[in-house]
């Protein structure tokens, strides 16, 4: 089981608030800290913000990003640079985006010499007026990690499975963590103040990745005590789990 803090909404977020939350996540033994953009509200920069947070804390960093709003090659480039600057600590949760957008994104990140002819996207476009242009293109530089862990939020499993994306669901009562796909576990976005017993029930048979919302550093510390301590150090004396 892995525990991430967030995703922390970037709207109106000041640097010192973000730094306090991220630092609290480290102190509470979270595996990762996540930020969330919201392009529909004009709030972008999720991947750049993750790159910023990665310079503040030593744990992994994640970004909830809106796919399909701009060209997937730009997203692939942002992912590559955020992963390189964090020295391979980036994780990505994709919200929205058409099948073609996700296909081009994943193909680009693989480092393949890419040539894609879809209904919406043609990459490279090979427009007659642009000369000279190559018949294929490839993302350069590539990310630091051979495969950047990525999840698709609330999406049917077949495409995600084909592309090696993890599945992610938002919390609701009685929901189970989505099944693991490829090499990543299913992800569940949990409400603030989640009860560990609920999470264990939601995890069921599989080892899940839980993102825990928490709005303030005390919330983070409390969540860490409830989740990271007792779950990760069973049998340890209370004076250790209460730290």
């Amino acid at each position: 089981m892995k525990l991430g803090l967030g995703p922390i909404p970037l709207q109106g977020m000041a640097r010192h608030e973000l730094e306090r939350l991220a630092t609290a996540a480290v102190e509470a033994s979270f595996d990762s800290v996540w930020v969330a953009e919201s392009r529909s509200q004009g709030v972008g920069g999720g991947l750049a913000a993750a790159a910023l947070v990665a310079q503040l804390v030593p744990i992994r960093v994640g970004a909830l990003v809106d796919a399909g709003v701009y060209h997937p090659l730009h997203m692939a480039e942002d992912i590559a640079i955020a992963d390189l600057t964090s020295q391979g600590r980036l994780e990505v949760l994709l919200r929205g985006g058409s099948d073609e957008h996700l296909q081009v994104l994943v193909a680009a990140l693989s480092g393949a010499h890419l040539r894609f002819d879809g209904r919406e996207l043609r990459v490279p476009a090979r427009l007659d007026v642009n000369q000279p242009v190559p018949a294929t293109l490839s993302l350069n530089p590539r990310p630091a990690q051979p495969i950047v862990p990525m999840w698709a939020l609330q999406r049917a499993g077949a495409l995600a499975h084909d592309l090696g994306l993890g599945l992610a669901s938002a919390w609701s009562d009685g929901i189970k963590v989505p099944p693991a796909t490829g090499r990543v576990p299913g992800m569940l976005l949990c409400r603030s103040g989640a009860d560990p017993a609920d999470l264990l029930r939601a995890a069921g048979e599989s080892a899940g990745y839980f993102l825990i919302a928490a709005g303030t550093p005390p919330d983070v510390t409390a969540a860490g005590r409830r989740l990271a301590g007792p779950l990760r150090m069973p049998g340890f004396p209370e004076w250790i789990n209460a730290q």
Partner: peptide, 22 residues
């Protein structure tokens, strides 16, 4: 710049985020 063999930086704002964090 984009898609160049030597990996010229294609995403300035992401790189800027890291510098601003550091």
């Amino acid at each position: 710049h984009h898609f160049w063999f030597d990996g010229y930086c294609p995403a300035d704002i992401a790189a800027a985020g890291a510098i601003l964090g550091r």
